Amino acid sequence: MDFSIIRIARTVLHVKDLELSRKFYVDGLGMIETERDDRHVYLRGLEEHCHHSLLLKKAEKSVVEVLSYKVMKEEDLEHIEKLFKAKGLKTKWMPKGNQYAIGRTLRVHDISGIPLEFFAEMPTVDRMLQKYDLYRGAKIQRIDHVNCAVPNVQKAYDFYVKSLGFSCSEYTETEDGDLWAAWLFRKPTVHDQAFMSGPGPKLHHFAYTLSDRLSVLDCCDVLASMGYADCIERGPGRHGLSNAFFLYLRDPDGHRIELYTGDYLTCDPDMKPKRWDLNDPLRQTFWGHQAPDKWFNETSTFIDIETGEEINSEEPKLEQRKPKILV
């Protein structure tokens, strides 16, 4: 492979009320505000040294503009463009200076229609890891992964593993052996990119790593005290998949964010992916309350990299199922 993808690096969200969103992410969740202007807020976690990992953009509709991956070097961008063009997939260059606080980027639509962005350059800033006086809310550390609903998980899996160099840590199969969900990684943790069967392409959630389980509980207290208790959609609980201690929230625009701790290293080359049966009740929830229907059925819409129009979703190849969960 002629290029090297490092990790998921940022999410770009469109929000209707920029100040309300800023209050939720900064005052509620404890993210660091790197910079802002009248139409943008640039946020990062305490551990992060890159300028931002979450960009909030003021807009008329609450949609997802792009999911961004960092690559090893500038030359990788040309090789990635060549790959996507060879497969007949849409590409678009964003020259340096076109976007603030990021270098030249390549935007594409992947095999499922998800808008992706690849970049090698972003300004660096001071880590706030030991600025304990700034710790508040969830004390968010760093971006961890994104999870997308796609109509054909096997197709997405094949593209990311065979063409983009991702590896698989865990996966879910139906009783017939069909791939229903997959957890794929580039950095040495459980996942950067997850796929699950559903109408798509849609963003189910993006996720940030926390330092410990107590940070999850602290976040619940802070959100409730600020009047955001209804934003807590699911959890706290523990996934069987990934072993994550989790909390799912909905921001003021309905975008879903997972706060996440407790997964494991995946860097050993002889590590075998863990298989889960779709009917295993411990797969999705090792313990915790039953997820509400909206957790399964509601997602965020992507937009086209050229037109900015909302991308239509396709029905999944496999039947959607809500598993029985042990409480």
Rank of each mutant, 00 (worst) to 15 (best):
I5D: 03
I8Q: 05
I8K: 03
I8V: 15
Y25D: 01
Y25E: 05
I32M: 06
I32T: 03
E33P: 05
T34R: 09
E35Y: 14
D37L: 04
G45C: 05
H49Y: 13
C50S: 14
S53W: 01
L54F: 10
L55V: 03
K57R: 15
K57N: 00
A59I: 00
E60W: 04
K61T: 09
V64A: 04
V66T: 14
S68G: 15
K73D: 11
E78M: 10
H79R: 15
I80G: 08
E81Q: 15
L83R: 10
L83W: 09
F84C: 01
K85Y: 03
W93G: 03
M94F: 13
G97A: 08
G97V: 07
N98K: 12
Q99L: 08
Y100T: 10
I102M: 04
R104K: 15
L106Y: 03
V108F: 07
V108N: 01
D110P: 05
I111S: 02
S112R: 04
F119Q: 01
M122L: 02
M122Q: 13
P123A: 13
M128S: 12
Q130A: 08
K131V: 01
D133M: 11
G137L: 08
A138I: 06
D144N: 15
C148T: 11
A149W: 13
V150G: 02
P151M: 09
K155I: 04
Y157E: 05
D158R: 11
F159S: 04
V161T: 15
F166W: 03
C168T: 12
S169I: 05
S169C: 05
A181R: 00
A182E: 00
W183T: 06
L184K: 08
L184P: 04
R186K: 15
K187Y: 07
T189W: 13
V190L: 10
Q193F: 15
Q193C: 14
P201V: 00
K202D: 05
K202S: 13
K202L: 10
H204D: 14
H204E: 12
H205R: 01
T209A: 14
L210K: 01
S211D: 15
S211G: 12
R213Y: 13
R213C: 08
R213T: 13
R213S: 09
S215I: 00
S215F: 03
L217E: 12
L217Q: 09
L223K: 06
A224G: 04
M226Y: 11
A229V: 14
D230Y: 07
D230T: 12
C231L: 02
I232V: 12
I232H: 02
I232G: 01
P236A: 08
G237N: 04
R238A: 05
S242L: 09
S242N: 10
A244W: 06
F245K: 04
F246L: 08
R250D: 11
D251R: 00
H255T: 09
I257M: 08
T261N: 12
D263M: 03
Y264E: 09
Y264F: 14
C267Q: 12
C267T: 10
D268F: 12
P269G: 02
M271I: 12
K272W: 07
K272G: 04
P273S: 07
K274L: 15
L282E: 13
L282A: 09
W287N: 06
P292Q: 06
D293L: 14
K294C: 11
W295R: 03
W295C: 03
F296L: 08
F296Q: 06
S300Q: 02
E306N: 14
E309A: 13
I311L: 11
N312S: 15
E314G: 08
P316A: 09
P316K: 05
